[in-house]
């Protein structure tokens, strides 16, 4: 080990006022909005625009960029091993590859089946 690193000095250097900043600048009070809210606000802003100014056909916004759902049949895979399969357990909807995996699927601890399903967004969400 070389000489110890002075973390306090590093911290002071980063938090002190930097000379290259505009001396009149005061950071405004900002609200921390989560991404979801930002996207929702943006949606509202766009909808409130004057329709005559909008070119709906070619408009580019965060939401128009979103990829559409797939039109192809979804391939199914074993939730435990990831191998291709078409079997699904009638107890808990978990997909399994063969009899051996089914033994595991049948005896999954409470909640674990939902965790497996959650990985592919098929879990039951209680609100």
């Amino acid at each position: 080990m070389s000489d110890p690193i002075d973390l306090a000095a590093i911290s002071d250097a980063t938090t002190s006022w930097q000379s290259f900043k505009n001396p009149n600048w005061r950071a405004p009070k900002r609200r921390h909005k989560p991404a979801k809210q930002l996207i929702g606000d943006e949606q509202k802003r766009i909808q409130s625009k004057d329709p005559s100014e909008r070119d709906i056909e070619n408009e580019v916004t965060y939401s128009t960029l979103q990829a559409p759902p797939s039109l192809k049949p979804i391939k199914t895979y074993c939730d435990i091993t990831g191998l291709p399969t078409s079997y699904r357990s009638p107890h808990n909807q978990v997909r399994y590859y063969n009899m051996e995996v089914y033994d595991v699927v049948k005896n999954l601890a409470a909640g674990v089946d939902q965790e497996y399903l959650g990985l592919r967004g098929a879990n039951v969400i209680l609100r």
């Binding site: 979103q66 990829a67 559409p68 759902p69 797939s70 039109l71 192809k72 979804i74 391939k75 895979y77 091993t81 990831g82 191998l83 959650g118 990985l119 592919r120 967004g121 098929a122």
Partner: peptide, 26 residues
Amino acid sequence: VERIKVPEVLFQPSIAGIDQAGISEI
């Protein structure tokens, strides 16, 4: 299996429960 399964989500987002088409389909 995970070695190819994780990157495969880009091509089949349904593996991870994303309701969108994959790179190739789009």
